[in-house]
Design a protein around this nucleic acid. Structure first.
Lengths: 244, 244
DNA sequence: CGCACACTGTGTGCGCCGTACACAGACCAT
DNA sequence: ATGGTCTGTGTACGGCGCACACAGTGTGCG
């Protein structure tokens, strides 16, 4: 395995610098691209991120980006890497539940800061430094448990999946809270009209339960920790089953 | 709430027929659009689905589709509705674990049949007939448990989230198994090169554990039921905690 | 020291996309 | 019969990702 086999973007992100080479020095770095793209996405969502707009934000031409990024997908990878940053340092005094909870909440906060992350089409597992650091931190939360490495991976992925999924449910976490409330109310109204009690008793029961907390949970605190607790209980069951 | 307030696509999918009106009769139905689009997506993935290609598949012009569908997003909704079909009928003799497991596996099978579903950008919760039927079936799996309607919703959503997430991990479930194996091996190789044991001990431990079962599980049987068991254990913990 | 050449950012252009809009023809209510 | 409404069609526009040829830059080697 040679570092030259790595895609260009990975080499840049890992700081693998090729020997000094002839030609003009690059005018910027992929981290600049990431910053510009993230700025656009934070304000206008992922659709606001296009090669031309990112280039314009940097003050360069569209095609100049292709000297740093092989394709649009690579741009997404760089954005992800930059948006999450380094993972949180877990408190060694915590037990595994406390550690993985802190990890999950930090992950959730990252998604809340940059909702467009959820709209990025998932193509392949991550290989960039910060992403691997997040993986490592999530695995480390299970240090001291009797779980095997494979089980730790599954457990971490399960929490990861949960956080992503729970975030997805929050109607794309629109930036405007009033719009969220309006969309939620419209949905509930239509659901009440369509999901009649005779054919959809379960849904109907859910609808008349709380005054306003219907389908989409708040994702802020309550609904999120509720589901997370369930997931962690499942992991705990496996742990206790393994330590008789 | 009037049915006329519903979006056109919803009216069509629920079979709400407006009174007979002047003008030419429609040449086809949105279900035809769905069939054509699904056929394209099944063979060429979601990128193969464009307005013009779907229209060409039907033998009509591009713009004719807009008489049935307000925008591209509506096309996705119709595709989803048609691709999943009706939910499985759950065996009343099963307990809730058996029921929700059957439900989850049927859901997984649907995703495996139509992998492009995972690439559809999620915009809003579903309101179409089959989607609601799936929701209802998932909720009904918890009949007989002491869970409140809200808790049943959370539990069902948790399983739903898990199945989606677990499917996502299978490297987009490429149709060509050889390509999957090659991509997986390339990834593992790069991961071994980048995630050195000194800085990423957890990841490294995961890597040297099994010969070939590294990051992406098979999703076929083993890894899937493993994670599902964990999720169900978490729900079971909540149930037993509620029935002392 | 100078030069060859790899590399930089730029400009042009292609094919595809989603969809707004005007239009001619088809059909039902009156 | 006929007016009005709906149908499918044609044209057109702006934006997208990206291939490719090109002129200028600066380093390593002779």
């Amino acid at each position: 395995m040679d570092e030259s086999e790595l895609p260009r973007v990975l080499q840049q992100m890992w700081g693998i610098e090729g020997r000094s080479r002839p030609g003009p020095k690059p005018a910027f770095h992929i981290s600049d691209i990431a910053r510009a793209a993230i700025k656009l996405a934070d304000t206008g969502g992922l659709p606001a991120v296009s090669m031309s707009k990112v280039a314009a934000e940097l003050g360069f031409t569209t095609m100049s980006l292709y000297r740093y990024v092989d394709a649009k997908d690579d741009l997404y990878v760089v954005m992800l890497e930059h948006a999450f940053g380094v993972p949180p340092t877990l408190d060694p005094a915590d037990d595994w539940r406390g550690k993985i909870t802190a990890w999950a909440e930090a992950f959730r906060d990252g998604l809340r800061r940059h909702p467009w992350i959820l709209q990025i089409p998932v193509q392949e597992p991550p290989l960039s430094p910060n992403q691997l650091a997040w993986m490592e931190a999530g695995l480390a939360a299970f240090d001291g448990t009797p779980l095997t490495p494979g089980e730790r991976l599954s457990a971490m992925l399960l929490v990861n999946i949960y956080v992503r999924g729970a975030a997805q449910l929050s109607v794309n976490m629109l930036t405007d809270p009033a719009a969220v409330r309006a969309a939620d109310q419209l949905y509930t109204e239509r659901l009440k009209y369509l999901a009649t009690a005779d054919r959809f008793p379960g849904i109907a029961a859910t609808l008349q339960q709380p005054p306003d907390e219907g389908y989409a949970g708040d994702f802020d605190t309550g609904e999120f920790t509720f589901g997370l607790t369930t997931v962690l209980d499942g992991i705990e069951a496996r742990i206790t089953r393994q330590t008789p």
